[in-house]
Simulated assay, not measured.
Amino acid sequence: MAVIIRRATRNQIPEIVKFVMASRAKTFPGQGQTTLPDLAHFQETYIEHRDGCFLTAHGEDDQIVAAIGYLAYEPRFAQLDLGHDRVVEVVRLYVDPSWRRAGLASRLFAELMRHAHEAGIGRLYLHTHPHLPGAIQFWERQGFVILDVQETTRWGSVVHMSRLSDPSSSFLEPHIVPNTGMPKPNNLFGASHQQIQGF
């Protein structure tokens, strides 16, 4: 199936917001349908901001079938030290169920990485959850490493991950100990990874 990947434009915003909110409702049922701040201020966050980018994938009927974006990282997790590079947060990766398992998510992320690298972004951050099938493994295949696993009352386990934006660094970056910037010993990473797999 042919897919076209595009960078978001202002006239696409209503369609993008509708797709993301519908996808989010299926992924996180019961979380409410209030428009999220980044979507409510989509133009300022993803189109006008130098650390913003949003991509959509379109099928043959030109309907959105997948989406992904990054926005300026807000350092709201005290246990993480992501260094002094320009850091963005990867968000809103959703793929229509009928288009899954065809490599579309990887294609979208590769294109997002290209934009980040060309924009001079230093590091990409994201967080995900063990209850999302295959999410941790998917992001590890994209070169992300686990920085921390946080337990929360609202979201359960939150897995914080990061990677450099340089495509050549995909699988070469050391695992980082939070708040130190120092490589995490392999045995500690292995233990935390096993803990995550057991959720």
Rank of each mutant, 00 (worst) to 15 (best):
Q195N: 10
H129K: 11
N187K: 07
V158A: 08
E151H: 12
H49L: 13
F189H: 11
G120K: 08
P75M: 12
L104V: 13
I13K: 15
E173L: 13
S192A: 08
F77K: 15
I176S: 02
P174Y: 12
E60W: 06
T9C: 04
M161W: 11
W99R: 02
V149F: 03
S169K: 14
S98E: 00
A8C: 11
R86C: 14
G134H: 04
S157A: 14
P97E: 00
L39H: 13
F77W: 14
Q33S: 00
W99N: 00
D96K: 09
V87A: 09
V149E: 02
A22S: 12
K26L: 03
Q12S: 14
H117N: 15
L36K: 08
A116E: 14
Q197N: 11
A57M: 12
V95C: 04
H127M: 10
D148Q: 14
L124K: 14
R141G: 07
P75D: 13
I176E: 00
P14N: 13
I146P: 05
R50Y: 09
I121T: 08
L112C: 06
G181Q: 05
R100N: 03
A119H: 15
L71Y: 03
H127T: 03
V145Y: 07
P183N: 08
F19M: 01
I4R: 14
E173W: 06
W99M: 06
P178R: 05
A102D: 00
R101Y: 01
A67V: 13
D61N: 10
G69P: 01
A105Y: 03
H41V: 05
Y94E: 01
A78E: 07
D96V: 09
P14K: 15
V158R: 09
A8S: 12
H41N: 13
Q43P: 02
A78W: 11
R50L: 10
D81A: 11
Q31G: 06
Q43Y: 15
